[in-house]
Design a protein around this nucleic acid. Structure first.
Lengths: 199, 199
DNA sequence: ACTCGATATTGCCAATGTCAATATACCTGT
DNA sequence: ACAGGTATATTGACATTGGCAATATCGAGT
């Protein structure tokens, strides 16, 4: 239904987002320009500004979509387990896997200036952190870990996870001390260390 | 000895770096431009390109200086203790304190594109990580922690430390779950968790 | 049929990174 | 002291970019 003649071609907003995400798969954040995106979807260099006040607004939209996707992914992988410990590991793995498969989104979500970190650690917490806290609370309730401050523990775990993830994204993951640390069994190892299980 | 008449004013290179560092104290990375820096130190907009091939080259130089400063700082604070555990804590605290007092440098050292993380985690490791490994090895040798993989443990600790630090830098540190986590005693708490001391 | 609001276009501007050509000062060997 | 070379700095130019303003085009409701 869009694209009558040529002027109003209809889906600039979503097409622009798609183009941006695709561009980010091969280019860096700063290398992506409004004008090139506009050209890529075949509109004039100012058409984007109908739908996004700013370049920043574009990133914002993409970032939102990214957080949405991430939460969905984590939820999906958590749901297949019932024991809190397995759910925790699954969630962490989902986080890392999402980052690897969606580098583009992560770059936007946690770009330096306007911070995904703020959102991810906001008082009420993003979904992802909330899930973590929930599982840790469950673990504490079951008596398997010390009942001190599940929230603090969650932040700590998330910091590790996030640090690991972003580091892997920057490095590319081929070489260096992170290679082994990133593989799935190592995440379990990390969690063991941090949780200091009673067992 | 510099600044004879007006043309060759001598210290463009160092003055440019100083100006950039100063500018970064109040502005974001992308807000700092070669031309403004040149203007700030009173030279033409192309003078900088005598001393730096690129804008990137400028960041590189500043980044190098930053890593140098960081290592010095950590060494200085570690040196006043003799027990490995105290040295470890002192080093971690030094890391965080350096980041808080030198936000400018950290922003450049760990800017997204060309990665400080690669350098900090490079095979031979930056000074800072090397120090960490050394203390952990000492701890393992003394039998106070498990003797498994001091290097892996070091990376893990660094990831937490770095994640915490960068998150604090982005947030500003006033509010949110990181406030308490960042204070000095909390770093000890983090280390306890990760080290899972025998004691 | 006419108007209005959303959408898209063209034109424009200042700022920026960077290249090329030119000017200026310093240094070195004679 | 001087000539020439070299490092340093300047001016000029250019393409790209983000973003504003004015204009054009279309669709829907009266």
């Amino acid at each position: 239904m869009p694209r009558k003649k040529d002027y109003h071609h209809g889906g600039v907003k979503t097409e622009l987002i798609n183009a941006a995400v695709k561009a980010l798969k091969t280019q860096s954040l700063e290398a992506v320009s409004m004008r090139k995106l506009a050209a890529a979807i075949g509109v004039s260099h100012n058409a984007p500004y109908m739908h996004f006040k700013d370049k920043e607004a574009l990133w914002l939209a993409i970032s939102d979509a990214g957080f949405e996707l991430l939460s969905k992914e984590i939820n999906r992988e958590i749901a297949v387990h019932s024991l809190w410990r397995e759910r925790l590991v699954a969630g962490c793995n989902a986080y890392v896997r999402f980052a690897e498969n969606n580098r583009e989104y992560m770059l936007v979500m946690f770009r330096p200036s306007t911070p995904g970190i703020v959102r991810a650690l906001a008082p009420k917490g993003a979904e992802a952190l909330g899930l973590l806290i929930r599982e840790l609370t469950a673990g504490a309730a079951s008596g398997e870990i010390e009942n001190t401050d599940p929230e603090k523990l969650a932040v700590l775990i998330w910091l590790m996870l996030h640090g690991l993830t972003m580091a892997k994204l920057q490095i590319g993951g081929e070489r260096g001390p992170l290679r082994q640390l990133g593989s799935e069994d190592r995440i379990g190892w990390m969690l063991d260390k941090v949780l200091a299980l009673h067992s």
